[in-house]
């Protein structure tokens, strides 16, 4: 490819018009597969799901209504229903998985990039949790944390007392355990993306900085972070978009028992019980909240740092 540039293909004169048509054709072609796929497999298939939010199956058949929406706000106000707790847990999952998780993954990626001893080995290992299905990982995690499992055994031998903490089935610990799990196993895919991004930074930029005697903290914060900002902000935008739909590993851990309900799992649970109209409405409500939120986050992230081209 560089050959072509070096040899220099003779510049053909083209009218602006034909250039425009050609470009339009190119854009159309590039977008066509994606857009057709989207229209067929998303719009056509899911259109009904959005309509469902405004429908209700009654004695007289299907009716159009806003009932599902008012039902949600009503249920939100019922203290015994604990939907406020679900909201709180949802936000906690976001905070731990993203607000804390992303910077940690970045730090991990940075030190992997700095070729710390065994960094290749570490990279494979850190990626392990992402390779296998969550069901398997949760099963392993659960056995580790069983009442008579090794974690309690280790704690017992340290403290000298019998420790029989129910990490998963005691509401004093359950949500904390799940948050820890989300944090502990959440690095993998972020590390892949971050190392990919860091490796794309031109080596000479970092080389110059190093010659100037820039400290590691400054190198990370003032050079690497701005240079991979598009990746960081993209991941943040993506995480914000999934804020309410991401149910976390609740199904595999507790099925929403022991005070671990989340909005995402609540929707899932409703659907499992063959009820579609109500969860469709809940989904739409949170889309209405989430969409401006994502746009704001994206705008804010753009404000913090302008995209750097390199």
């Amino acid at each position: 490819m560089s050959d072509n540039l070096a040899q220099g293909i003779p510049v053909k004169k083209k009218t602006l018009q034909s250039r425009k048509i050609q470009r339009g054709f190119f854009i159309g072609l590039m977008l066509s597969v994606g857009i057709i796929q989207f229209l067929v497999f998303w719009v056509y298939v899911n259109f009904n799901s959005i309509l469902m939010a405004f429908q209700l199956q009654t004695r007289e058949g299907l009716i159009w209504t806003f009932e599902n929406f008012s039902r949600f706000f009503h249920e939100l106000s019922i203290a015994d229903f604990e939907l406020d707790l679900a909201l709180k847990n949802t936000l906690l999952l976001f905070v731990v998985g993203t607000v804390i998780g992303l910077p940690t993954s970045l730090l991990f990626s940075y030190y992997l990039y700095k070729k710390i001893l065994f960094s290749k080995f570490f990279r494979v290992i850190f990626f392990l949790p992402s390779i296998i299905s969550a069901a398997v990982l949760v099963a392993l995690f659960r056995y580790m944390l069983a009442v008579d499992g090794p974690v309690n055994a280790i704690l017992s031998s340290i403290s000298g007392k019998v420790v029989d903490i129910e990490w998963i089935t005691d509401e004093a610990y359950s949500m904390g355990t799940i948050l820890f799990y989300v944090f502990w196993t959440g690095f993998g895919s972020n590390i892949v993306l971050f190392t990919g991004a860091i490796h794309r930074i031109p080596q000479d930029v970092l080389e110059y900085a190093r010659l100037d005697g820039v400290s590691m903290t400054r190198e990370l914060l003032q050079i690497i972070v701005p240079l991979i900002w598009p990746t960081i902000s993209t991941l943040l935008v993506f995480a914000t978009a999934g804020l309410f739909t991401n149910s976390g590993p609740i199904l595999l851990f507790t099925q929403g028992q022991h005070k671990t309900m989340t909005i995402g799992y609540f929707i899932f649970d409703q659907v499992q019980n063959n009820s579609y109209y109500y969860p469709a409405a809940i989904g739409l409500i949170f889309t209405a909240i989430g969409f401006p939120l994502v746009i704001i986050v994206k705008w804010l992230l753009g404000k913090i740092l302008e995209d750097v081209e390199y």
Binding site: V40, F41, S49, T245, V271, G283, T287, V294
Partner: peptide
């Protein structure tokens, strides 16, 4: 151009909205 901004927003929108009960439609299609 004007289209790309819309596309980006639509992409974000589709990620936020949880889709329920689309299995029958999808399966039939």
């Amino acid at each position: 151009f004007w289209g790309t901004k819309i596309i980006y927003r639509v992409a974000i929108f589709t990620m936020i909205i949880p889709i329920v009960g689309n299995l029958p439609a999808m399966y039939k299609l």
